[in-house]
Design a binder for these strands. Structure first.
Length: 578
RNA sequence: GCGCCCGUAGCUCAGCUGGAUAGAGCAACGCCCUUCUAAGGCGUCGGUCGUAGGUUCGAAUCCUACCGGGUGCGCCA
């Protein structure tokens, strides 16, 4: 049940019955204040000009025509011609009952589309660092939401497992192995390993040449190089998987489709473009001139697809990935989460891909950009010594900090339980802090804010959830199959019910606009409304009539289920006690 | 130089396709625990929505210019 959609459809229907207003836009909005009801229709003012009537007169005509008798009280016209819709408490109560009885919370599945989500995509030459956090968790959350809405989501971890730096790395690895070290030991710290290799590359005579030679051999399919590369990749992937595990992100080996996988397709992609006649040779390289992105002087944008020496670039790989996803995976949507700096590149890629026939017309190509993670000082987030922060270390620190904060509070929970809670709170905090900000610009990473346990944070949401669970324990109800007659009498109950029914609207927004922060805001508002309700409307206290108690338990249960579902879609875990 | 993103309360951020007195959280201050987890609730304080024009019945939102910050612009990814 999508209330917004339902009300809007009724207004559309009404407009179609009004002479001259057929097909006019039906701007419905959520009301900003309770006295204006739950929704407001703002179409009358715009129609005034077209129909040459006073907006309030038009509003009256619309009110006469619109049929909302089953769900709303009489409509009010206010101000210049706003039409306020006040939903009837009994109708809301019935919707709450319906949602509570449905495992999907009365959210219908949409017509299934194939949606490719490109997320995380770490560079395997190094260990995952903070720069990979946003793509990983934003992508994971969006993928989960789209999946929940009924779509067929294909996750693609476009790992950077190919490129010139691997020559240097496998050369170094070969030496290590010959010194009878085991690969996993040698690669236990990828950052150190990379640094060592880089130093040799820069300083050691002959090493750089050997590294370059290895790149050529590797790309040429040399078995020995390939075997070394394979070992390196496997260990590095293992590191990534540990991070995904800690992060509670739904990414597995099956989702990996690294750059190397596209290697065999690259010549074909360039050939495709040549066939379409959009590639030209310029300064020895194969390039596409993009007139659509020309500057003021008419100079077209340049997109190189093959180097002058004959090698391919990341642009070529991205085009190959595009073709594979659109044609092989049959994607209706391709969604790519990378940092904002690559926005121009993907814009170029889409134009080239469409002209070059690498993207089916029906396939959308969407880039979900985001900014960098900055420290409290507004500069790129680094360790105290100025190094890159490893993601694994960051996550460990989050859990550790959460544990300390939890230990400061007296608790009757066992050590094991406390550790488990610290893990969920720490990881949840770090994810929520990031997910709750949409900015395509950079964002400030601040331990104190995200772990403060107060305000708009994961711990607050987890606390709200745990608090509701304790009510159910106390009431001794079975949350699996509880149902009750819902009666909405108080303002706090109505506000809460309305918020509950807007869950689907929020998920649609997340799916369409790739904005998980909308879901975060929603869950925070839901939790806040619950707390307000909880203070104002007693549930288990003495003197509460049985019907009221049952009704409020039902309301609380739907809040609990909605929060659990919402947090799960964000990849944030909940707990029964806190 | 050109392109893209951004500029909202002291700080961190919302504000959907233009709509009624611009919202949260933190910080500050004041209340509320013999009563369902006070990791909570209620309230107060706090904003020329970068600046100047324009479009509109109506602009934080759309258009133009400028100022300020970030980022990208041919063989790295």
């Amino acid at each position: 049940m999508n209330v917004f959609q339902l009300v809007q459809d009724r207004f559309k229907q009404a407009l179609s019955n009004i002479e001259g207003a057929e097909g006019a836009p039906a701007p419905l909005a959520r009301s900003t204040r309770p006295e204006f009801g739950e929704y407001q229709f703002n179409g009358a003012m715009a129609l005034a000009k077209i129909l040459k009537q006073k907006p309030r007169d038009i509003a009256e005509t619309i009110v006469e025509q619109v049929n909302l008798d089953d769900m709303a009280d009489s409509l009010e016209i206010a101000g210049p011609g706003f039409i306020n819709v006040k939903l009837r408490p009994e109708w809301l109560a019935a919707q709450v009952e319906t949602a509570l009885a449905d495992p999907r919370l009365a959210i219908e599945k949409e017509l299934a589309k194939k949606v490719v989500v490109d997320l995380s995509s770490p560079n395997l030459a190094k260990e995952m660092h903070v720069g990979h956090l946003r793509s990983t968790i934003i992508g994971d959350a969006v993928a989960r939401v789209i999946e929940f809405l009924g779509h067929d989501v294909i996750r693609q971890n476009h790992m950077g497992d190919w490129g010139t730096q691997f020559g240097m790395l496998i050369a170094h690895l070969q030496d290590k192995l010959q010194a009878s070290e085991v690969a996993t030991t040698a690669l236990s710290d990828l950052e150190d390993f990379y640094r060592e290799a880089k130093i040799r590359f820069d300083d050691e005579q002959g090493f750089a040449d050997r590294a370059r030679e290895y790149v050529v051999k590797l790309q040429g399919g040399d078995a020995e190089c390939k075997a070394l590369w394979q070992q390196f990749i496997e260990v590095s992937i293992q590191h990534s998987e540990e991070v995904y595990e800690k992060l509670n992100v739904k990414l597995t080996n099956d989702d990996i489709m690294g750059e190397s996988a596209y290697n065999p397709m690259l010549p074909g992609v360039v050939a495709d473009l040549k066939e379409q006649g959009i590639v030209v040779e310029d300064q020895g390289a194969q390039v596409v001139f993009i007139e659509e992105l020309a500057n003021k002087d008419g100079e077209p944008s340049v997109f190189i697809v093959e180097k002058s020496g004959g090698g391919f670039l990341y642009s070529t790989t991205d085009l190959a990935a595009m073709k594979y996803r659109s044609f092989e995976l049959d994607a209706d949507r391709i969604i790519i989460f990378t940092d904002a700096r690559q926005a121009y590149h993907f814009k170029q890629a889409e134009i080239v891909g469409r002209k070059g026939g690498l993207l089916r017309e029906e396939t959308t190509y969407e880039h979900g950009p985001f900014g960098m993670m900055l420290g409290k000082d507004g500069k790129p987030f680094k360790t105290r010594t100025g190094g890159t922060v490893k993601l694994a270390d960051l996550l460990d620190e989050a859990v550790e900090r959460a544990g300390k904060l939890l230990a400061e509070r007296n608790s009757d929970l066992s050590a094991d339980e406390q550790n488990e809670i610290a893990r969920k709170v720490g990881i949840g905090a770090i994810k929520y802090a990031d997910l709750s900000k949409n900015r395509t610009t950079d964002y400030i990473f601040d331990w104190d804010t995200m772990l403060s346990f107060e305000g708009d944070t994961a711990p607050y949401l987890q606390y709200a959830f745990a608090r509701i669970q304790s009510i159910f324990r106390k009431a001794g109800i079975n949350t699996e199959d509880f149902s009750a007659n819902v009666v909405i009498a108080e303002a706090q109950e109505k506000a809460l019910a309305m918020k509950l029914l807007q869950f689907v609207e929020v998920m649609n927004a997340v799916s369409q606009n790739l904005t998980p922060h909308v879901l975060c805001t929603y869950l925070y508002e839901l939790a806040s409304l619950f707390m307000t309700f909880y203070e104002a409307c007693p549930i288990l206290k003495d003197g509460v009539p049985e019907e009221t108690k049952q009704s409020r338990l039902a309301l609380s249960l739907l809040v609990s289920k909605t929060m659990k579902q919402g947090l799960d879609l964000l990849g944030i875990e909940t707990m029964e006690k806190m």
